[in-house]
Design a binder for these strands. Structure first.
Lengths: 217, 217
DNA sequence: CGGGCGGTTGAGGTCAATCAATCAGAGTGG
DNA sequence: CCACTCTGATTGATTGACCTCAACCGCCCG
């Protein structure tokens, strides 16, 4: 991993979310690169930084004692993550592939009331997503989970046509509360139904998004 | 439903959470009573108020088109709820039984930077709880779900010995992503194992909380 | 060409859902 | 006080969606 100048990052940055909350990040944040599966932080670490994804993607991981794994969220380019209530991390964050992040010390952030308000909005956005996730995990079937996952991903990557899955089948399974085999089977089923088209294991096209959305009700 | 003076409510209020975020609520909030299953607000309503539970309890409900129901959260005495990012409610809120709430107009809240900071902390607390919920729904078995649910409830009601379940079996099922039959069976199993003692359907005692906690890992 | 890793496919098992009957408690009316 | 009813909870039998275990495939890279 290597440090880059901020300006270099800005210019090389792929799709940034255009939201006003971008301004939360101070101009003096450092950029940092991470390799595949590299930890940004671990469960239990001091929560003294917040991060913004410039390129690549990150997963938030929680583990049960016996090794069962749940991914709480994926963070895509433009997303801010790492804001916590307490002193300590309650989940690990790991890069999915080659990933570049902006890093800001937590202390430098909520100084002004303006900043506070924006952080608050970020927290609420995460909360919304987490609540949607609860509905999916609590009440949806495997194919409904996959459908809502793919639609959400397509929207966040604002993919007009095809897009690339930033994560492995195992990551998808651990996000959706399924096994890797069920993800694979369900995906081939969706493909057979003409709702998904895979070209290569990670390249996805959603030919009938409306039909997919119907699956999610 | 009837209005009460704030002072009357304050004095009659059961366990208030002692957290600093209590001060978020302006002194000039109105109290309002709700009956069993009465809606505080519905999905899609304008999100112009926030609420604090004085007594009773509230459930946050989301519905799929075919009627499947997921309870996102239960709000107990002392809890604040109803803070939303957008203009509209994304879930309904319904009283579990006779319930008294403090109501504050949203506009009157985040005025000062102090208040903003406190609302932000509230949002983060909800986020934490929601993330825990995701782990439970994604990766835990029925008995683990019940165990963590009961422990969480006992702690929030700070029940030293016995406590009363504010919600029905159906509500528990819809919170834990199970069916009412599975909740019932699992509860009797936990009782057979000596981890739970039920006296009447809603009166619960947890004789070995440590053993229950072990179940949750 | 061979080995390794991630993904897919298949066969069989399991946990929780479904369908259905019974039970317990609260309220009602005779 | 005792049927009767209504609602919510429990229990039982069976089914089914997803998991587990295992083999196989395809691609990349040495």
């Amino acid at each position: 991993m290597q440090a880059h100048s901020l300006s270099a990052m800005r210019t090389s940055a792929p799709p940034f979310a255009p939201g006003a909350e971008d301004d939360v990040f101070p101009l003096i944040s450092a950029a940092k690169s991470f390799g595949r599966d590299q930890a940004v932080y671990d469960d239990g670490d001091a929560a003294d930084c917040v991060y913004k994804v410039v390129s690549g993607a990150v997963r938030a991981v929680r583990l049960l004692a016996d090794g069962r794994r749940q991914i709480g969220e994926f963070y895509l380019p433009g997303d801010v993550f790492g804001v916590e209530l307490g002193e300590r991390r309650r989940a690990a964050a790991e890069a999915l592939g080659e990933t570049v992040l902006l890093v800001a010390r937590r202390a430098s952030l909520p100084a002004g009331p303006e900043q506070g308000g924006r952080l608050w909005r970020l927290a609420l956005r995460d909360l919304q997503r987490s609540q949607d996730h609860v509905l999916t995990l609590g009440r949806r079937t495997a194919s409904e989970r996959l459908a809502s996952f793919l639609l959400d991903l397509a929207e966040r990557l604002d993919a007009t046509g095809e897009f690339e899955l930033p994560m492995s089948r195992q990551d998808i399974a651990d996000y959706l509360g399924l096994t890797i085999e069920t993800v694979s089977r369900t995906l081939t089923q969706l493909q057979a139904d003409g709702l998904v088209r895979l070209s290569g294991v990670r390249r996805v096209r959603l030919p009938r998004p409306a039909a997919l959305a119907e699956l999610c009700e």
